[in-house]
C-alpha cells in the first residue's frame, strides 16, 4: 500500500497523512522539543523566580546583549567534585552490576535452555513474572529483608549467629543487590533466546573431537552466545546508569548515582539550569553504549 498517486482520493491521502503525522508530531512535541528546552535552559542562570531560571533572550532596551547564555553550569559541573564523583560512581555501579547480572544470569539462562520444553516455559514465565509486577514494591521488599530490624537480621539474631544487627541497608552493597535483582530478567531473556536456538550438535561435535566440558563452553557456546551477552549487558547497563529509585531507597547518603544527584539538584536545590546541564552531560554519556549496541546489531544482521 502507500504510493503517492496522482489520482488518489483526498480521503485516502488524509488517512496516510494521519497515520504518519499523529505519532510523529506527538513525539516531536513531547519528546524532541523538551530536549531542546533542556539544552537551552542548561545555558541559563538560576534565579529566584517562577520558573527559576533566567530568560534566554533579552530584547529590553539598554540590555548589554540580546542573548543571555552562560557556560557557568557546565563549568560548575567540571569544577565541583560532587558531579565527577556521581558520574563515575554511576558508571562503576552500572558496570559492576552488569557483570554480576551476567554471572548470575548466564548460568540461569543456560540451565533453563537445557530443561525439557514444558519446564522451560514455566521457568521462563517465573523469570518474566516479576518484571510485570511493581518495580517499586520489589525494591521495597529488600528494605524489609535488609533493614536493621529486617528479616535477615532477625533470623541471624534468633539463630545466635550475630549479637548486633549487621548494617546492610543504606549501603552500596544494597544498591548492587537492588540493581541485579531488578534487572536480572533483562539479562536472562536475551541470553536464553540465543542459547535456546543453539544447535546441540555443535557441542556434541566438539565433545566428539575430544574437547572437555569447559573447553566446549569456552570454545563453542560462549562465542556463539555473544550477541545475547551484548544485548543483555546493554539492557542492564543503560537503565542502571540513570537509575534513581534504587540508590535513593537502598543506598546510603553517599550513594551518589547521577540520577539521584540530578533529582536532588532539581527538587531540593531547585537549581533547574544546573540540573539541565547535568542531564545534557548524562545524555552524551548514554549515547556511547547505545552506539556500541547498534553497531553490534548491525554486524549481526
Amino acid at each position: 500500500m502507500s504510493q503517492a498517486n496522482h489520482s488518489i482520493p483526498l480521503g485516502d491521502k488524509l488517512w496516510r497523512w494521519l497515520v504518519i503525522s499523529l505519532p510523529y508530531w506527538w513525539l516531536a512535541i513531547f519528546f524532541l522539543a523538551p530536549f531542546a528546552i533542556v539544552f537551552k535552559i542548561s545555558f541559563a542562570d538560576p534565579v529566584v523566580a517562577q520558573p527559576p531560571f533566567s530568560n534566554f533572550f533579552d530584547f529590553s532596551p539598554g540590555a548589554e546583549s540580546w542573548l543571555l547564555a552562560t557556560l557557568d553550569n557546565y563549568r560548575f559541573i567540571t569544577e565541583d567534585n560532587l558531579y565527577w564523583i556521581s558520574y563515575f560512581k554511576s558508571l562503576k555501579i552500572a558496570t559492576i552490576s552488569t557483570v554480576l547480572c551476567l554471572l548470575l544470569g548466564y548460568p540461569m539462562a543456560y540451565g533453563i535452555a537445557k530443561c525439557q520444553p514444558g519446564t522451560r516455559n514455566i521457568l521462563l514465565m517465573l523469570v518474566i513474572l516479576p518484571f510485570w509486577t511493581s518495580f517499586l514494591l520489589r525494591v521495597y521488599a529488600w528494605i524489609v529483608m535488609l533493614g536493621k530490624t529486617g528479616a535477615i537480621n532477625s533470623l541471624l539474631l534468633k539463630m545466635g549467629l550475630i549479637t548486633t544487627p549487621i548494617e546492610m541497608l543504606y549501603t552500596d552493597g544494597a544498591v548492587y543487590l537492588g540493581i541485579v535483582y531488578t534487572y536480572i530478567p533483562f539479562m536472562v531473556l536475551p541470553l536464553y533466546s540465543v542459547l535456546e536456538k543453539m544447535d546441540t550438535n555443535l557441542q556434541d561435535a566438539a565433545a566428539d573431537l575430544g574437547a572437555r566440558r569447559w573447553q566446549v563452553f569456552f570454545n563453542i557456546i560462549l562465542p556463539l552466545s555473544m550477541p545475547g551477552v551484548i544485548a543483555g549487558s546493554m539492557l542492564v547497563f543503560i537503565p542502571a546508569l540513570g537509575e534513581f529509585v534504587i540508590p535513593s531507597l537502598l543506598g546510603g547518603i553517599d550513594s551518589l548515582m547521577i540520577g539521584r544527584t540530578l533529582y536532588d539538584e532539581f527538587f531540593i536545590n531547585r537549581d533547574w539550569p544546573l540540573a539541565s546541564a547535568v542531564a545534557t552531560v548524562l545524555l552524551f554519556i548514554i549515547v556511547v553504549p547505545i552506539m556500541l549496541l547498534q553497531s553490534s546489531q548491525k554486524e549481526r544482521s
Binding site: 519528546f31 523538551p34 530536549f35 528546552i37 533542556v38 543503560i238 537503565p239 546508569l241 540513570g242 537509575e243 534513581f244 540520577g259 540530578l262 533529582y263 532539581f266 540540573a275 539541565s276 542531564a279 548524562l282 545524555l283 548514554i286
Partner: peptide, 8 residues
Amino acid sequence: PEVITGLS
C-alpha cells in the same frame, strides 16, 4: 533514563 525524560 527516566530522570531525563521526566525533567525535560
